[in-house]
């Protein structure tokens, strides 16, 4: 199965390029811990903003990972500009705004917006009541977090959406289905009342073609397994209602093209052949070095075989795959631009 291509929504600025996720405005990014989920979400926000419209990058787990990535002070509960996307075909890039959402602030905002409960909200916070409510009601915190994303997607000014797209750095793969499906759970809990109505709205956004859930993985057994399980679970839990998006294979080492690996013979014979070539290259008579380099090659060949196997498993999952290069040093803005570029080249944004 390939990703459904949707006709460009009239609300979306028509892009000169064709991407795999036309019409998607809420990009939920998940992945196993350690796969670089936050980095991929940030790069995706930059890549999407290259289309010229502002993009909102949200985090929901209170880690302040976005602030660290963009090297700005910790984000408050307020949308702040953190970067500008590079220009595309002479068109200026859009701004990337960032927001750290926490359930309590989202609940206060919600109470304010709908019930004019500003002072009550403060009093409830002081008493620890909001903390209590978001703690004991399973799914309440989740619906508040996804609710904020849905609100940002739907927000309009001057007759058009404020944000071209919203990218959410979401909880890890193991929790993503429950996180996105809570609207259903909470509808059952609060049979009437404000949260119920809110949950229904959130549910309609998340289960629309406007939302896609992307998975970040490495070419290793555990994260690949979690990705495959995550896609299956998403389909089962939502009854196919929530759209699975792309698979972002992160930290792929450079020079990985399948043809770049020479045919290997055996460690010893390769070492002998290498020794001759090394001498020709001016590295002298050094059979030990040749043996070490041969060992390195064979080690690499084993790694590649294992990774190739993981690639096959990912491809069988039926979602578009994008490969992102390993950034060996610290991830800074330049590195994020590079990853965003790789995403655009492959049609992810």
């Amino acid at each position: 199965m390939t990703a459904p291509r949707r006709p460009a929504d009239s609300l979306v600025t028509v892009s000169v390029r064709d991407t795999d996720w036309e019409g998607v405005r809420l990009h939920v990014v998940t992945g196993k811990g350690g796969t670089g989920k936050t980095t991929v979400a940030a790069a995706l926000a930059l890549a999407l903003a290259s289309n010229g419209r502002p993009v909102l990058l949200m985090e929901v787990e209170g880690r302040q990972g976005i602030a660290q990535l963009f090297d700005v002070p910790p984000l408050p509960y307020e949308e702040r500009r953190v970067a500008v996307a590079p220009a595309d075909d002479g068109r200026p890039g859009g701004d990337v705004f960032a927001l750290a959402v926490d359930p309590q602030s989202a609940l206060i905002e919600y109470l304010e917006m709908f019930y004019n409960l500003r002072s009550a909200g403060r009093a409830l916070t002081r008493l620890g009541v909001l903390d209590f409510a978001t703690t004991i009601a399973p799914g309440l915190a989740d619906v508040l977090l996804t609710g904020k994303a849905a609100e940002a997607v739907r927000r309009r000014a001057d007759g058009r959406p404020v944000y071209g797209a919203v990218v959410m750095d979401a909880p890890p793969t193991g929790r993503i289905s429950r996180f996105l499906n809570v609207s259903a759970e909470i509808s059952g809990l609060a049979r009437a009342g404000p949260i119920r109505g809110h949950a229904e709205t959130v549910r309609s956004v998340i289960r629309s073609p406007q939302t896609a859930v992307h998975f970040v993985t490495l070419l290793e057994e555990m994260p690949v397994q979690e990705t495959i399980d995550g896609i299956t679970e998403l389909r089962e839990v939502s009854g196919g209602g929530i759209q699975a998006g792309g698979i972002f294979v992160n930290m792929v080492r450079a020079g990985w093209s399948p043809g770049a690996m020479p045919v290997l013979d055996g460690p010893e014979r390769d070492a002998q052949a290498l020794a001759v070539a090394l001498k020709a290259a001016g590295l002298g008579e050094d059979p030990e070095l040749a043996a070490d380099l041969a060992a390195e090659l064979h080690d690499e060949a084993r790694t590649r075989r294992a990774q190739q196997e993981q690639r096959r498993r990912l491809e069988a999952a039926g979602q578009p795959c994008y490969e992102l290069p390993l950034i060996p040093d610290e991830i800074d803005l330049a590195a994020l631009y590079k990853l965003a570029e790789a995403m655009r080249e492959q049609g992810a944004a």
């Binding site: 020079g255 020479p262 290997l264 290498l274 070539a277 290259a281």
Partner: peptide, 25 residues
């Protein structure tokens, strides 16, 4: 540098192996 010096016409097959090994290294 060694990998680069091996590149060029007329090199033996074993050069390919060495170039790959040196770049990987």
């Amino acid at each position: 540098a060694a990998a680069e010096s091996l590149q060029g016409p007329g090199e033996a097959d074993s050069a390919d192996l060495a170039i790959a090994a040196l770049r990987l290294h």
